[in-house]
């Protein structure tokens, strides 16, 4: 530890470190969910590109036209799936005594920590594709707006509601100072 911040009353080296906390990965099944939802998105893109070519009289309907428009989309599709697979192990969460932490991203890595005493509420959600794999997402809201809200996807129902109960229990304990 360097001593960059010398004017502080606590010794920074003695504080618990976020990166040292115990992180858990999310359910492996969620990788399928994210691959499917990405694929659906690209399929929609391809269909709309094809429709533009088919229904526009000014564009020839040759192999070249289809190749030029759909080829790059296919390429991005492959990239996107590859990225999703590579980035998947980075989606990890950690529960500490007083906060919840979530990390994500491969090229642009982000680690967000929310103290329990700043959580407004938490909810367990399930999208249509998640339902096929019986997975749930936990969404944690703060007063910091969308940018600081946390979504932990790919949790088993039992686990998701257990974490939610844990969080809400903690916020209720700390709620005395929040009106």
């Amino acid at each position: 530890m360097t001593n960059t911040f010398q004017n502080l009353s606590v010794n920074l080296a003695e504080l618990p470190e976020v990166k040292q906390s115990e992180f858990h990965g999310i359910e492996k099944k969620y990788l399928k969910v994210s691959l499917i939802s990405r694929s659906l998105w690209f399929l929609a893109l391809i269909v709309s590109a094809a429709c533009i070519i088919l229904f526009n009289d000014d564009i020839d309907k040759g192999v070249f036209e289809f190749g030029v428009s759909i080829g790059p989309i296919l390429l991005f599709w492959v990239f996107s799936l590859g990225y999703a697979i590579k980035a998947f192990p980075r989606k990890r969460y950690s529960l500490r005594e007083k906060d919840i932490i979530y990390t994500k991203g491969l090229l642009w890595q982000t680690r967000t920590s929310i103290p329990f005493n700043r959580i407004q509420h938490a909810e367990v959600k399930q999208g249509p594709i998640e339902r096929m794999f019986s997975l749930h997402s936990l969404k944690v809201f703060t007063a910091g707006g969308d940018s600081s809200d946390l979504v932990i996807p790919g949790l088993e129902e039992e686990n998701a509601s257990r974490i939610k109960e844990y969080i809400m229990g903690k916020t209720a304990l700390d709620g005395t100072d929040q009106q």
Binding site: F5, P115, N117, D177
Partner: peptide, 21 residues
């Protein structure tokens, strides 16, 4: 330094019981 800031600010938020709003 970033991690020190992260740890310190979290510590401050979690130990402070004043009203924040």
């Amino acid at each position: 330094q970033a991690e020190e800031l992260e740890n310190f600010v979290l510590y401050k938020v979690e130990t402070d019981r004043r009203k924040w709003m």
